[in-house]
Nucleic acid binder design. Structure first.
Length: 115
DNA sequence: CGATTGACACCAA
DNA sequence: ATTGGTGCCAATC
């Protein structure tokens, strides 16, 4: 048992929140970080996503974008198009790596989960 | 152990 | 509005 596995709480929570994102909706790193308590720890969420590929359960990382709604993390997928395709399949319009109507599809865990 | 990096966010010019 | 610089926390080199 490695130390990283013990301290996976933060990462695990990130994965949990990602899976809680409803179909056809997206969230932002900052929102998730804020929900976990690290308001400025958005980068950690990104790191978690990087590890998400190694997780046994699938993590809809494609539903997580930066606060601009830009698909900055698409390059980390199997193929850069993967993220776009997945989002498009969920009814989310993407143009030039930018989510259209981002505010409409935006899903804030602090607002949706923390009622 | 110190320095650098990273799928971001915020502030100042 | 756009660009550049700084801060955040953890992991990797």
């Amino acid at each position: 048992m490695k130390l990283s596995e013990k301290n996976k709480n933060f990462f695990d929570l990130v994965y949990q929140v990602c899976r809680e994102i409803p179909y056809g909706r997206v969230s932002s790193y900052g929102a998730i970080a804020n929900y976990l308590g690290s308001a400025r720890g958005a980068r950690m969420v990104g790191w978690a996503m990087n590890n998400a590929h190694g997780q046994q359960k699938f993590v809809p990382a494609h539903r997580v974008v930066n606060r601009n709604g830009q698909l900055t993390g698409k390059i980390h997928f199997s193929t850069p198009n993967e993220m776009e395709i997945l989002l498009l399949k969920e009814g989310i319009k993407v143009k030039n790596d930018q989510i259209i109507d981002f505010k409409k599809v935006f899903w804030d865990p602090t607002t949706e989960l923390s009622l």
